[in-house]
């Protein structure tokens, strides 16, 4: 068995030598389950606000980019261990995450989070609140809503479904993702006060990748300057604040 591992290692080594090159392609990772930020369209491709944004940023920074998807749960660990180079997945900039990865300039204004309930539901702030695990909203429910019970789901879609089927009284998520859902379904409504958590959405990169961060920061700056970022925001995130 030792022999097997060794020969696998040798194989891995020689395979790499055969394709020796320089590091020119930047791999972008998204979740693909957080419309309108990012989702998989009918063609099975990544689509949404961040798809368009990412393509434009790469063009401006003169980088070749490829897209891949990764579960939200393990999206930071896989970045840190080098499976891709950039997280572009509607990730809010927080203190906690900044200790581990570095963020680019924010490319959205701080987006308020909102509660979505069934239409006509009363005060649910002390009820069961659904949220996607590992998000700022989940952290907010545990830390700042003493009366509420947190119900965690792996994807945003599942936490929304929990409200529809009565598992949870409300879901707490980014307002921009909830608005289209409420518009499409008259049985649901945004209720209660908006809460402001997090400091806008940014690209996540390894802390050691300072060069890449500088390139993307410059690209975001230029998109802010010529108004193209605002155009994207109005197109994809109705009601969200522009720069």
């Amino acid at each position: 068995m030792k022999k097997l591992i060794l020969s696998a290692a040798v194989l891995a080594l020689t395979a790499g030598l055969a394709m020796a090159e320089s590091h020119t392609t930047v791999r972008l990772a998204t979740e693909g389950a957080y419309p309108p930020y990012n989702f998989i369209n009918d063609k099975g491709e990544v689509d949404g606000f961040e798809r368009e944004l990412g393509d434009e940023l790469c063009k401006r920074a003169e980088l070749t980019c490829t897209w891949s998807t990764n579960e939200w749960d393990s999206i930071i660990p896989n970045l840190v261990s080098g499976n891709y180079d950039v997280i572009i997945a509607g990730m809010s900039i927080t203190e906690e995450r900044s200790q581990v990865i570095s963020f680019s300039e924010p490319y959205t204004q701080p987006d308020p989070s909102a509660f979505m309930t069934k239409a006509g539901a009363g005060d649910v702030m002390s009820g069961t609140i659904a949220a996607q695990s590992g998000t700022i909203q989940a952290a907010y429910v545990t830390a700042d809503m003493p009366g509420a019970t947190l119900l965690e789901f792996a994807t945003a879609d599942e936490s929304v479904a929990a409200v529809k089927n009565g598992e949870a009284d409300a879901v707490l998520a980014d307002k921009a993702t909830l608005v289209p859902i409420v518009e499409a379904d008259s049985e649901l409504a945004i209720s209660g006060d908006e809460v402001l958590i997090g400091g806008g959405v940014g690209l996540g990169m390894r802390q050691s990748d300072t060069e890449l961060k500088a390139k993307f920061d410059a690209a975001i700056e230029s998109m802010k300057a010529d108004g193209s970022l605002n155009a994207l925001i109005t197109k994809w995130l109705p009601g969200a604040a522009t720069f």
């Binding site: 389950a33 419309p35 309108p36 989702f39 369209n41 009918d42 689509d47 949404g48 994807t155 879609d157 599942e158 929304v160 479904a161 529809k164 289209p180 859902i181 518009e183 499409a184 379904d185």
Partner: peptide
């Protein structure tokens, strides 16, 4: 998962 008309046909 349920799909809203904005993002799918």
């Amino acid at each position: 998962g349920s799909k809203t008309p904005n993002y799918t046909d």
